[in-house]
Each structure stands twice: as structure tokens, then as C-alpha cells.
Design a protein around this nucleic acid. Structure first.
Lengths: 187, 187
DNA sequence: CAATTTATGTCAGCCATGTTGACATATTTT
DNA sequence: AAAATATGTCAACATGGCTGACATAAATTG
């Protein structure tokens, strides 16, 4: 990850680059514009997905594999159609990465008990281990952030992120998360 | 955008899909695990970048064009090298989208005054207009979220997102944002 | 001044992951 | 028996990352 050294010894803002940033810049006159959130979200997300990417690339996998593995591990026995809805991609796109995960024994598919057309998805122990490893990297970042920010940060972050989701998707997402949390607790 | 109907009439959690979600699920015994943030971030970011994507595709552009146009508009006169550092991509990747933006008169390049090797980047009026339009979509989502959440939400979100950025990048990012904000205010 | 470094551009090709369209197969539903 | 559903698959294409190699002009340095 390269760092940002936008030193700007240009026509625009010459000599400003050595000024310290931080609270002083935000506390000034007026409130900061909303666009700070646009950019912070870009940078935060970039770093957030960057950690797992390094591990994945060593295995010949990419972000797409991570997403599939994550949701399958969190929701054992989910249908292919459910995964497609969550990821919001076509079945052909999913097929490519899913096939690799199945072939390399990270995920397995079981015929549905009630409906034998279904291929229910489960993470193998190998898959669970990788999923845990990848999630641990992201969890570490989040935990560090919350530790810095003090109590209430988790709740604030959750509410902010929830409010950023399309209104008609929010309930589905919360339901998904709640169910997976309950299932995880029962183990 | 498809919605999520993870109905789960499967072996795992039969019949749970009709339960309402929300506060009740979170307020229960113990605190929710961190993984909710992982998933909320995924869904929030997906929707967040989804809005501009629709507009962009009509113009034959993609997300990459948006990013370039956004940062160039916010930081007029920036060097190509600075943009590369911000986006964290190779110059070859940048060249592809930048060339299109220049060819179609959204961005222009001026020779640097002090250093004539530099090609300083500026958005044209056409480019600024598109940038504003795209940013407006994202701003709308953010503003709606903050309105729902009440006062303090903006600050909480900013602090959370900042804390999620790699520590060694944070100052650079904050500096970048602060400078662009000041420049925008002077206009 | 000559040599080197720097800022940028460019060609060529590869890879990951999205897309559309068409079609196949097994199973369930009507 | 017919239709709908869940899933898989083939083929082709687009976007936007990547690497490696090389080119040019301008600035910097010995």
C-alpha cells in the first residue's frame, strides 16, 4: 500500500503541504462538508479489503472467493439462489469462483433434503479455517478502531452503516446478520 | 439492485424467515459480534457505489472514471503522480481511464509552471458538472442517513471511518481532505 | 556540460471478475 | 402431462486491475 504524499508544490496550494492535519482543520469555522465522508469511505474500504487480498492472492484466490466463503461459512446450508441475491452477481460469475472453492475443498454442496434440486452450501473445515483467518484480519482492524474510539463506537458504526444501505434492503440484511449471529452463538 | 430474500426454508433454520428483525435481535443477551460490521460495510459500500454506477454506464464510463474525476475535481491542478498515490493503481491502469476522460473533454492537462514535465490535472466545466452529479447521488444517501440518525452522526461516522484507515495513511488522507475543503470554500 | 534521475506516456499482453444470451437437466408444482 | 423452478454450463465480451519494456522531455547533479 503506497501512502499518500500529495505534496502539492503546484500552482494551486504552494507550500501548504507541511501543515499538520487533524482536529484543527475540522474545528474551524463552519462544519465540514459531506464530501469528507465520500472520501473517507473510499479510503477506509480500500484498506479494509486490502488485508485479506494479500492472503488470498497467495492461494490463487481473489476478493470474490472471500465473499463467497465468508457468507457460506456464516450461513451454513444456504441455497445458491440466496447467495446470488446477497452478492448481487449473476450465477455465471458465481459459478466460476464457487467451482474453484468446491474443487479445492473449501466448500461443499449437499442436495437439499426437502427440495432435491437445491445444492445447499457448506464450508468444509478447510474452508472455515480460511474464512476465520481472513475475517480475523478485518476484525482486527475494526476492533482496533473501536478501541481507539471508546465505548459507543460499535453501536454508532452499526447504525451509520445500516442507514447507508438501501432502505428496501435493510430489513433483509439485518435479518441475515441476526440469524447468522444466533446460529454462531449456538455452536 | 436485487433485494435479499434469504428465505432459508432449509435444514438450517426452517421457518425463521418471517420473523421481524431490528432492535430486538440486537438488544438480546450479550453484545453483537464484530462480524456484523464486516457485513454491514460490504452492503453499505455496495449500495453506496451503486448509485453512480448507473449514471456512469450510460456514458460508457465505469467506477474508475468516477474516482479519477472526483479527485481531480476536488483537487484541481494535482499531479498525475499524486493521483496515482491516492488511487493506489498503476500508471497504466490510470492511463486508460484518464485518456478517455481527456479525449471526451471531462479533464484537461496543463503543463506545470515550475516543472514543465508535470501534466497538472483539471476538470473541465463538463467534467465538473458530471462530478457534481455523481457526488450528489452519494451525498444524498449520506445526508439521508445522517438525518435519520440525528445530530452527532456525521462526527461519529467521520471518526469511525478515519480510524478504519491504515494508521500510516491517515494523516495524508486527512490532509488531502482538509486542503480540498479549504479550496472548495474559497471559491 | 554531460550524465543521471524524474515525470509521464505508451505498447503489448495477462488475469480476475463482472456482464449477456442460450441452452441443458433434474425436480417440483400445477 | 405440462409448466415452473433450481441449478449448471458454454461461449463471448467488457472493465479495470497487473507486469514488463521502452520512449521522451525536462530537471537535477557531478
Amino acid at each position: 500500500m503506497a501512502d499518500i504524499n500529495w505534496t502539492a508544490k503546484t500552482a494551486v496550494a504552494p507550500g501548504l503541504s507541511e501543515r499538520p492535519a487533524g482536529a484543527a482543520d475540522r474545528a474551524g469555522e463552519g462544519h465540514a462538508p459531506i464530501s469528507d465522508i465520500i472520501e473517507l469511505l473510499f479510503f477506509a474500504y480500500r484498506d479494509f479489503v486490502g488485508d485479506p487480498d494479500e492472503v488470498l492472492s497467495k492461494l490463487g484466490f481473489g476478493r470474490a472467493h472471500h465473499r463467497v466463503l465468508h457468507f457460506v461459512t456464516r450461513n451454513p446450508g444456504m441455497k445458491v439462489a440466496d447467495l446470488l441475491d446477497i452478492l448481487n452477481i449473476t450465477k455465471q460469475s458465481l459459478a466460476r469462483v464457487l467451482k474453484q472453492l468446491v474443487d479445492e475443498d473449501y466448500v461443499l454442496q449437499k442436495e437439499g433434503a426437502q427440495d432435491r434440486r437445491q445444492r445447499l452450501l457448506y464450508a468444509t473445515p478447510k474452508g472455515e479455517a480460511l474464512s476465520r483467518k481472513l475475517d480475523a484480519l478485518q476484525t482486527e482492524r475494526i476492533t482496533r478502531a473501536f478501541a481507539e474510539l471508546g465505548p459507543g463506537a460499535h453501536d454508532a458504526a452499526r447504525r451509520f452503516l445500516t442507514a447507508m444501505i438501501d432502505a428496501d434492503n435493510r430489513d433483509g440484511v439485518l435479518r441475515l446478520i441476526a440469524r447468522a449471529d444466533r446460529a454462531a452463538k449456538r455452536e
